[in-house]
Nucleic acid binder design. Structure first.
Lengths: 165, 165
DNA sequence: AGGCTGGATAACGCAAGCGTTAGTTACAAT
DNA sequence: ATTGTAACTAACGCTTGCGTTATCCAGCCT
């Protein structure tokens, strides 16, 4: 459909707050919420790790997790460190893992337009090493799930986690 | 890469504010900004149309457009209605159109998890009518651009734009 | 020229989210 | 039992963005 045609049609309808995009943005309302989801994809599960790795305050993380639990995007899972009490860790639900295209497409755009050199992370297919991309297409094609993706760190971004403040 | 392995690795690096996702979220910081982008994809170009169709205030739209112009996502284009003065309309730049996967993946997730019945809009390939989807894959495949996509309205959502308040 | 119209923005009070600080809870250790 | 500790969470001032109102500005119209 040509752009001008789409423009003409746009007057015929109004979906108001029925728009899926608007509804999703109500859930992922704040930056902190989204960064928690990002960390989930990176493998973070525990409260304090979210706090330090996101660089947000504990209450902000607490609020974000509460929202994400209510939305069914993360779910608490009990774990027990030997010699410690039982704790919750937070894992993406199936709905949460389905946010992968949202997450990756944001990264992909940022890598293209907001990074000067090579981006800090690359996402490649686990077996083959082929780069994973988000594609908009009508063509059926084998899709990668979270577990098929290997995250490679650009060496320029490596840090000694203990070494630097 | 298995999840546990990713988790272990996550301690080795810290990209801080270098993360593309974080940077993008600084640009698309507010819901209004994102809804303006949505309307651009739907074909809206003029200031007042953004205001009425988004349901936001004029200053909020003004601020959002200023941010998007600064980020190079939309660009002003002069137009002239006969008998009126020259005005700006706003069109997605190439960088803006590259937000298509972000936009579509949000819609796709919302359609799956936040809609009860059929979603209000369907996105299909213009020529064939095949449904357009966002796919995460390493497989090279012909991709659709904005102009290849036809937006179909679910009849249940049709409104007489003049008829109802 | 001077009024008028309509697009766009500045000014300001309000509401929502964030970070700091302080508190609560549930267990282990003693 | 009592103390200690680690994981969260409530309470509160502050910053930021939103909407309402008022203003500006450019050009058509008479």
């Amino acid at each position: 459909m040509e752009f001008e045609e789409r423009l003409r049609d746009r007057d015929a309808w109004s979906i108001g707050d029925g728009c899926s995009a608007g509804r999703v943005l109500d859930l992922l309302s704040t930056k902190t919420v989204f960064l928690v989801v990002r960390e989930c994809f990176y493998g973070t599960t525990r409260f304090d790790d979210f706090v330090t790795r996101i660089g947000a305050s504990a209450p902000a993380v607490s609020r974000a997790l509460k929202q994400l639990k209510a939305a069914g995007i993360v779910a608490p899972v009990v774990y027990r460190e030997p010699g410690s009490r039982a704790r919750d860790e937070y894992r993406l639900t199936e709905a949460g893992e389905d946010l992968l295209p949202v997450f990756l497409s944001l990264i992909q755009w940022g890598d293209t337009y907001l990074q000067e050199g090579r981006p800090p992370l690359s996402f490649v297919e686990a077996g083959t090493g082929r780069p994973i991309r988000v594609r908009v297409t009508a063509e059926p094609t084998p899709e990668a799930t979270c577990d098929d993706i290997e995250i490679r760190l650009n060496p320029a971004w490596r840090r000694d986690w203990q070494g630097s403040p």
